[in-house]
Design a protein around this nucleic acid. Structure first.
Lengths: 191, 191
DNA sequence: CAAGCTTGGCTAAGTGGCTTAGCTTTAAGG
DNA sequence: CCTTAAAGCTAAGCCACTTAGCCAAGCTTG
């Protein structure tokens, strides 16, 4: 039996590719093993099991998403930064439909990289909101609002939840424009 | 073997209760059957299988949610109606954590009740938006924005995605307040 | 270079989901 | 009372994940 030479990274990266192709729900250890040219139980030499694989996938996807969000916003501010970040967010979700759902998993506190990636993503949003003068509790509320709006939109879009023929791109741009308006006149609590 | 006297409705309603108790992901035909006091395959006399059960559950939950949204908004208008409907929406999701996720399933066109329930829910949102003077394409965009924001928020809340100690109720009220502001000054396209 | 050890592969087997096939019995209706 | 549709059952199969335990590849070290 010739060795394939797997390690955790190659397994997780192939899982990410496979998830994007078939959908996260259809990602199965059996399919992954066959894709990698090994028998299913061999995967257990590299990941603890299906749950652990999903967590590792989440860490990878969160890091990728945080990087794209940060890169998009760099050198911009205000509505410019908001639009760039929002486009990067949706772009990632559309290009990586299998990875995206995992980005909403709460990181395992023991996985430092995952925790750090999550903090980078939130930090990127915070930085954009600072451009609107939002800090403290206001920034927390606004971050939750922005995450909710973006996550909700891409989730509904991916689920095919937008039935009517109206162009989805335009709806998204209108959503982002409305968030821009909201942040300019955010109902301050003085937090 | 004494008959229990099940029918599709009792099965679906018990599935709804069970889902709320253990979570939609943990809803299993085995657990449902044991709860109903029958052997697992007996359920197939009443529902076609696990997928069909989920669809029926979705139809039930969508109808319940649409009713609560409509009831909340009746006799109110503008921001008042928006807040009432938003509170009803989140309230339903919190009281029925197992049913809520199914409300985002696209209805099977063959299931008239499900389709009708979905239309009632969208219609309720449309009615509220009409109070802001939003119609046509603007109303479509605004509906998508509102659904995204509310669905995103309750989903992230249910997933435990809001880590910071800031009060979640307040964040939600701020989100709804910001949507109110957005709808007042919606970026019109004249659709 | 050989011996030995770590490690990555394997097969076998068990659990727990969902589903189908086919039988039995209930209980409703003529 | 007899018939029959339907509601229950058992048995069996599929597919996913997981664990146990074996074997060989290939590195390390004397």
């Amino acid at each position: 039996m010739p060795r394939v030479g797997l390690n955790q990274q190659t397994v997780v990266r192939e899982a990410a590719r496979l998830a994007d192709e078939v959908g996260f729900e259809q990602l199965t250890l059996a399919a992954l093993a066959s894709r990698l040219g090994v028998a299913l139980p061999s995967l257990y030499k590299h990941v603890r099991g299906a749950d652990a694989l999903t967590q590792k996938l989440a860490a990878l996807a969160t890091a990728e998403l945080a990087t794209e969000m940060t890169t998009a916003a760099v050198g911009r501010s205000g509505g410019d930064a908001l639009r760039a970040m929002a486009d990067a967010y949706r772009g990632y979700a559309l290009r990586h439909p299998g990875r995206y759902p995992t980005t909403q998993r709460v990181p395992d506190p023991a996985d430092e990289e995952h925790v750090a990636a999550g903090e980078r993503a939130v930090g990127a949003v915070f930085a954009v909101l600072r451009g609107y003068g939002l800090t403290g509790d206001d920034a927390v509320d606004a971050t939750r609002a922005l995450r909710s709006a973006l996550h909700g939109f891409v989730t509904l879009e991916a689920a095919g939840g937008f039935g009517l023929p109206r162009d989805v791109d335009r709806s998204y741009h209108q959503l982002v424009a409305s968030m821009d308006i909201s942040f300019r006149s955010w109902p301050r609590t003085g937090g």
